[in-house]
Structures are given as C-alpha cells and as structure tokens.
Amino acid sequence: MCVVCGCHQRPLSPAGAATPAALDGLSFVAEAPAAGVAAPAAAPRDLHYGRNPAGVSVPGLDAERAIHLETRVLAANDRVAAANRQAFAQRGVLCLNLVSSPGSGKTTLLVETIRRLQADGRLRAAVIEGDQQTTNDADRIRATGAPAVQVNTGKGCHLDAEMVAEAWCGLEGGAPQLLFVENVGNLVCPAMWDLGEAAKVAILSVTEGEDKPLKYPDMFAAAQLMLLNKCDLLPHLRFDVATALAAARRVNPDIEIIELSAFGGEGFERWLQWLAARQAAV
C-alpha cells in the first residue's frame, strides 16, 4: 500500500518498471486498440487522471501492478496426483501408467499379464482404462475377472489425475496390489500429466517404426520402462531391434527395456519379474 495516497504501490518488477512514470494514474477513455495502431479519429481521446481507487494521480505510482505467481500450470493436477500417490502407497498399491500409440497392444498385454498373475496366484491386479469412447477395453479386462473401470475422455487426449482419483474410488474388490492405468493411445499428451503413478511404462510394438522414440522424445524421456511388444512377429518384419533400443536410450539413457510378446516367451517372464520386484518395493 502506498504511503502517499493509499493506492497500491507499483511493484519493483521489470514489467512495472517499464511503465512510464508520467502516465501513472492516467487513463484514456477511448484507447489505442493494439500496438502501434492509431485510435479511430472519431474516438475522443479525453484524459481522466486519478481513476485509481485513491482518486488522485501521483507520478511514479499507479493503479497498475504486477502479481507474481510463478505457479506451474499443472500445479492443480500435480496436487491431485500427489494425493493419489499417497493413497496408493498407504494401501501398498503399485500404480503403473501405460502409454503408447493406439494399436501397440496395451490391452492384449494387460489381459495376458492378468491371466498369468491369476494362474500363479501371485498378485491381484485392477485396471483403469482410458479411451475416448466405448467400454470395449474395460470389458476385455473384466472378462478375466479382474476389476476395471472405463474412463471415456470424450474428446480428451489424455487422462488426468482427477479422472484417476475418481476411477480409483469406483474400483470394486478392495485395494489391488497392482493398478494398471491404460492411458489414451497417444504418444504426445499423456507425457505431461502426472497421475500419481510409480512409473510410466511406454509400449512400442515392432510393427511401428524403430525411430518412434526420436519422433516422440517427451514420452520416452518420461518413461522408466519400455516394453518392445509383438516380438513374435520379428521374423516377418524389417524391424531393426538394435536401432529401436538405441533410439530409446538416446532420449532416455536410464530407460529399462524388456523385449517381449504379449503371447508369451522369455521376455514375458522378465516383465512379470519386473512387476513383482517393483511391487515388493512399494
């Protein structure tokens, strides 16, 4: 508060300092609409000093001021994500955010993962399914007997922390040991939204290009694990695995990688072991 007239003091910010002191407290009734554009000739350029709350004009002080925020745009989402993370930790739940382009085999991988976990009696899993429309994926998960909640985003391109919080409340059967969140198939937007997961798992299938991690670096940089899926198809494809792995490590030198096929094999057992190790660490 200004000690001279009671108006708000001008802040010592670069933006505030740029205000010419001579114009403080002065306003035009009709003003120039944009930078460098002259006001229409018909508009009266009457001057009215002292239109600030104090009703006076004091050079060097004006009604314009800066509010410093320095607030992250996603701060609101991140607060909900932190609450989700805490809720999962308290209940011993390992939450994984599965991200990929559409058609990489996320749902098939989940169905097979749940089926094997059930057969071994190892870990109980539940799934939050994100899509724009239909309940097809949740229906496939429920057919295994595991609880699932479908989140349809409408036109949205990603899940956010609030959607996951609400879906979590709607899951039946008590707290699972594993909570898979299958994000909307999209390698761009979901990279930015923290859902409260322990890790993002990116899935790249060998029917896609080897250079996908280079084309969508933000997603592969955000992931802790990459699953190279559909490896059973490699004999029929011109897909260079070494090139794909090098591309992933280039954007994320620390990324873990498991080559597998959703229909079984050695890599699938490694994936199950990875899940068990991460779950044990919760």
Partner: peptide, 18 residues
C-alpha cells in the same frame, strides 16, 4: 459506465506487442 469503451489499453505502458 465511463469505462465501458470498446478499446482496452489504459496507457502506452499497457501496449504489449502480441
């Protein structure tokens, strides 16, 4: 009512290039 004019900038200080 005196401020219900169409243009928006209050002074040259408020003209920010977009």
């Amino acid at each position: 009512s005196a401020h219900q004019e169409p243009a928006s900038c209050a002074s040259s200080a408020a003209v920010i290039s977009v």
